[in-house]
């Protein structure tokens, strides 16, 4: 037994300093195509937009905009003959409700209990959520806890394209939660259905079943993006739009 204690002590602190300080380690995020880029010609922009298999890139003239809600990090636009510029960063979470209203009435800006529901996720999103509970991200230090029962949960964290078979369990979990309660959709599948929906088997996003308060794009969203979403929920970080403007300083 003692050897484990010694081993644990010798390992030291591995946790990221985020949100106090931006995380600068390599490989913590796949990045996203630049939200907006200028192209020399409209045809060049259109050619770049066509390289996206999920229609996340849109053009208006020489301007190319990227919709993070649709992007699945297939890297195809980045590897073509005219690559679209990519940005790092991970503060991608966005609120869907009115911008100025607090997400929780009061007293919810500290600790949150989270019930994770898998609504057909590919396991990568769940794996990244699990990372939050592990030493490198260690969300306990921020007062964020996973709970096995929705009875104790403040936040329902849903991943996956919302398969039809999981609709009823998800609704039951939502019903079982005490109010005030919030729903957070994690991953491109949960936002738009991505490659899987809407179809006969999935509803194409959590929003068609439950009111979503915070969306975290990404396929899968890196742990720091999910953490950002949770902090946003408890009003502990700035709104994502502002955050995104300061991405240059925040991320490598």
């Amino acid at each position: 037994m003692s050897k484990w204690i010694i081993q644990g002590l010798r390992t030291g602190v591995k946790s990221t300093r985020y949100p106090r300080r931006p995380e600068e380690a390599a490989g913590v995020t796949p990045g996203l195509p630049a939200a907006e880029s200028r192209w020399p010609s409209p045809s060049g922009a259109e050619g770049a937009a066509l390289s996206c298999p999920v229609g996340a890139l849109e053009t208006s003239g020489t301007r190319l905009t990227a919709d993070p809600r649709r992007c699945i990090h297939c890297l195809r636009c980045a590897s073509g003959p005219n690559p679209v510029p990519w940005e790092g960063g991970y503060e991608w979470a966005r609120r869907t409700g009115p911008a100025d209203s607090p997400l929780f009435d009061r007293g919810f800006d500290h600790s949150l209990h989270i019930r994770v529901v898998d609504a057909g996720a590919c396991d990568a999103c769940l794996s990244e959520i699990k990372q939050l509970n592990k030493p490198y991200y260690n969300m306990h230090r921020l007062g964020l806890f996973l709970t096995p029962t929705p009875r104790h949960a403040d936040v329902l964290l849903v991943a996956g394209p919302m398969t039809q078979a999981m609709r009823m369990p998800l609704l039951k979990a939502y019903e079982a939660m005490p109010t005030p309660r919030r729903v957070m959709a994690v991953g491109t599948c949960a936002l738009t259905g991505c490659l899987f929906g809407p179809s006969f088997a999935s509803a194409g996003g959590v929003g068609s079943v439950l009111p979503v308060d915070v969306e975290v794009p990404g396929c899968p969203p890196p742990p720091l993006a999910i953490l950002h979403g949770l902090l946003l929920l408890s009003s502990r970080v700035k709104k994502s739009d502002e955050a995104r403007e300061t991405l240059g300083e925040a991320a490598p």
Partner: peptide
């Protein structure tokens, strides 16, 4: 008043 939490079974 909610139902007993049953893991979401039908």
């Amino acid at each position: 008043r909610g139902l007993v939490w049953d893991g979401g079974v039908r």
